[in-house]
Design a protein around this nucleic acid. Sequence first.
RNA 1: GUGAGCGUAGCUCAACGGUAGAGCACCAGGCUGUGGCCCUGGGGGUUGUGGGUUCGAAUCCCAUCGCUCACCCCA
Length: 426
Amino acid sequence: MAKFKAIRGTRDVLPEEWPYWDHIERAIRKVTALYGYRKIATPILEETGLYVRGVGQGTDIVDKEMYTFEDRGGRSLSLRPEFTAGIMRAYLENGLHVQPKPVKLYSVGPIFRYERPEAGRYRQHTQFNVEAIGEQDPALDFEVIALALHLFREIGLTGTRLQINSTGCPRCRPQYVSQLTEYYSTRLDVVCSDCRRRFERNPLRLLDCKVPQCQPVIAEAPNIRAHLCSECRQHFETLLSYLDAASVPYEVNPRLVRGLDYYTKTVFEVWVQGIGSQNAICGGGRYDGLIEELGGPPTPGIGFGSGIERLVLTLQEQNVPVASPSAPAVFLAHLGEEAKRVALEMVQAFRAEGIPALVSFGERSLKAQLRDANRVGARVVVVIGEEELRDGRFQLKWLDRGEQTSVPREQVILSVKQELRGVALD
RNA sequence: GUGAGCGUAGCUCAACGGUAGAGCACCAGGCUGUGGCCCUGGGGGUUGUGGGUUCGAAUCCCAUCGCUCACCCCA
């Protein structure tokens, strides 16, 4: 048994899995271009205070899930537990507000949360993240949601379900929360112990409880949609009308409450089956107060994150076909020291011509070399041995047909090239 | 953080108190220079780790670490 193992909640992405990642990244490049998003990368390390301020004290992420440590200079740093706060920091620090609004940005990179790992949940996972900053029009909410759904369609996922809700704004949410707590205050004896705790710490999450005994209480609870202020209500209804007009199916989910403090108005998730008990492949919302909270001018924004590992799991679960990298076309087998030198020279010549080529290493039987050629999927083997060097004609063995031809040494590359014509080489 | 199940070869698993095995994979030979199929052979393990019970532990007990699943929460 090896001495070192990948640490808990982290994983290796082995070559067999990469076609799925490449498939997704291709779709990300395509869709972000279609919607006019530009790429940005921010550091994985940020000041801890950025997340305490941005995501919010009292949230699970900040209170118990951050990888926080003191660096050698005594600063408190954290591995990023989400993208948005860091992107907003970069937006302010680099003066991106001078660009045409909305400023549309996307990122792909690792996120760290200290959670108990299970199917589809890791301590390090990779997120595709999108942010659109500086516009409060619900048309932008529509576009951001459309982008997410477009991506999932593009990679070939089926059965996605858009969940959407509005959590109001600092003007109407506190009133709703007080109505909710008032309602719950007379029912605390019939709800679960977790809900009694939520009642104190984060009342909105009461709506999210899955314990059977709490369901009747939730069903009768005041609905936030009926308690939104006129601005929030209009924003939400307009967004829904845009989705209707575009025939985008959605489910208004009054119990959809997200775990980050900065969300205002629109919140949404995209659900799919097939990742164990996890069902969210995408989550996001509007954060109209965040930039101001971080010390910038009042600036609205909206964005989402989507977990690549979960997308890969879902693609595999749904048997979505993805393109595999093409096999090397040519394999050079050699017998003897001189033949090996010639093979090394020739394999470079093939590569210089843009033809993927492999050469055998070590000194092995021709049988073993052919077996390797077959296993790596080569189309043709160039056999170089003493006879070939003496005669100046090399053997070309075509593995799919089993045919073998003899070609003058200097015509080997040309001959292979002509035979492979029509086969995509890139 | 809570609960449950499980840790044996690179992988999937057997052996369940009495000499650690199979299939797949790998390497070689059959075929002294010709792949896939087949046959034969070979290499590979301090049975996660530490302690205990026992004449004897992969097997029983304790601890610890890890994995998986569920809760919580999320992507």
